[in-house]
Amino acid sequence: MLLSIAPPALTALLIAAALGAAPRDEDPVEVDIAKLVAITYEQGKPLPQEIQDLDGKKVVIRGFMDPAQQTPDRVSAFRLVTDSCGCIGKPQVNHYVEVTLSGIDSEFRTNMVELEGVLSVGEVEEDGFVTSIYRLEATAIR
């Protein structure tokens, strides 16, 4: 009944809500990986608001596959870092984006890559260790 009288955009939203999917903007937001890694991170403390605001957003982000994970095999998950070398200083959990390729895979690339997908922000712990604060479910890699 409601669907029959609702305008098309609202109908789409209602269908999305009924299917349990969060409505998302069509155009991805361009996110600068340098901005993500530049924050002062302290375990358990809130992330800056402008970083928290990126949670759940569809984004485009550029960077390099972490050389520490290099492999001749195809990859469906990797860390995205700012530099083609992962060997500068001590790696911190805010220094990378944990990427999962959704429905695609890729050869390991040594050059810069551009990814599109949904970013999630916040601490994830395993065995009491924080293993990531940025995660990207990428649907496209260029």
């Binding site: 001590k90 790696p91 220094h95 260790f129 990531s132």
Partner: peptide, 14 residues
């Protein structure tokens, strides 16, 4: 073991 060969972000925490 975590500090020596764990994931990069885990090593300093361990």
């Amino acid at each position: 073991e975590h500090a020596r060969g764990g994931r990069p972000a885990v090593r300093p925490q361990a």
